[in-house]
Design a protein around this nucleic acid. Sequence first.
DNA 1: TTCTTATTCAAGTAGGTTCTTGAATAACAC
DNA 2: GTGTTATTCAAGAACCTACTTGAATAAGAA
Lengths: 221, 221
Amino acid sequence: MGDHRAKEALFDVLVEAARALGNGRRAELVDVLAQGERSVEELAGEIRQSVANTSQHLQRLLRAGVITSRRSGTRIYYSLAGPAVERLWRALRETAEAHAGALGALASSYLGDRASLSTISRDELQGRLKQGDVVVLDVRPRTEYDAAHIPGALSVPVDDLKARLRQIPEGRDIVAYCRGSYCVYADDAVRELSDDGRRAMRLEEGFPEWRAAGLPVESAT
Amino acid sequence: MGDHRAKEALFDVLVEAARALGNGRRAELVDVLAQGERSVEELAGEIRQSVANTSQHLQRLLRAGVITSRRSGTRIYYSLAGPAVERLWRALRETAEAHAGALGALASSYLGDRASLSTISRDELQGRLKQGDVVVLDVRPRTEYDAAHIPGALSVPVDDLKARLRQIPEGRDIVAYCRGSYCVYADDAVRELSDDGRRAMRLEEGFPEWRAAGLPVESAT
DNA sequence: TTCTTATTCAAGTAGGTTCTTGAATAACAC
DNA sequence: GTGTTATTCAAGAACCTACTTGAATAAGAA
């Protein structure tokens, strides 16, 4: 009774995952890893940091149990430790959104005038997929599409979109999706498609939320 | 495109709630505030820290949008900012449990031989409440019971239990509950009741989880 | 007004975090 | 073995955190 040392030690440990996620660069890493495993060098490119620094951030996440690693030849691939981590990252974003405060201004400075783009919810997309009157574009990098994607989606990484506009089936509306609400790939794609005269909209959330909702996914064979 | 400054700033903000929760003492504060609002002095007592230090921790949580405050006379009462925060705190505990690593040893050093105590799930308790063959004890401090409790529960703060053993209705099993899985009040109560020859068990989770599940609650009038 | 109580502020110290740079490993190819 | 590539380690500079102490506010009571 009253062993407050033990209580403090217990809460200090409970909180380790929060400290690990408590850094913008590490949060970016988690956001990318939610799409599938990646090597250190790829991750360093994604977060625009040196390889050494990225490696150190990864060790921190590893020690906190947020990610796991596997070696393959000279590369080491990191991935999220499990679904609890995805829930944690989602809860964190939702808390920030509920608070809003500083978030609004920053989000619009990064995300631009997202309000002017049409969107579609997960449920609506499911309905339209059954009717088959929609083309779904996965605009994430090819690796992430290969790891897992919405069944029937075409892989058109946003950087290739301009060159491949003519390959996209006509006569149907287009839905683009990417990593999640704080990813701009789908926004950029929808803008580009609209400029080309197509009816295009953005899936409100990203692929991880689709999978987390228990909806079907497909992988490259 | 490519404005990585804005992206970094955005993720730095998304992560503020995690930094706020990324300290054992602040996590203890959140765990207590999940039971209802409290003044600075009460909170300082709960986490065994000086009032000045507790106040500073509270300001940090406030700035991060994790809690809110209201003044009443000379006192200031703090409470959680909303349900997103409770989900965040839960996700954090679940991540720690999934990782397990250091947690196991620390938990058992603080929680003792919890494995030897009988427990009951939320669903089971709901069933037995309908049948009315069980006495429910809220063993948290009276303030927390007053703020909200499971309908029909008796308030018997764990410190008063020994003195009030004879007042607990006989002939029915007893279920004790407290703040949550990392709170020892219900364990202590179940041990004491068992020593007294009563059939007693602990509700697996605490009051906040009961409320978060949308189950009915009752407040002091 | 003065006194009291609850809370916050300010300054200081010890220790932790983030990023940089350059060297050290570790697996593989030749 | 040597060379090459991916990753990690080590040390250091600039900054941030957690706690302490004592003084400053702010609301209410006398």
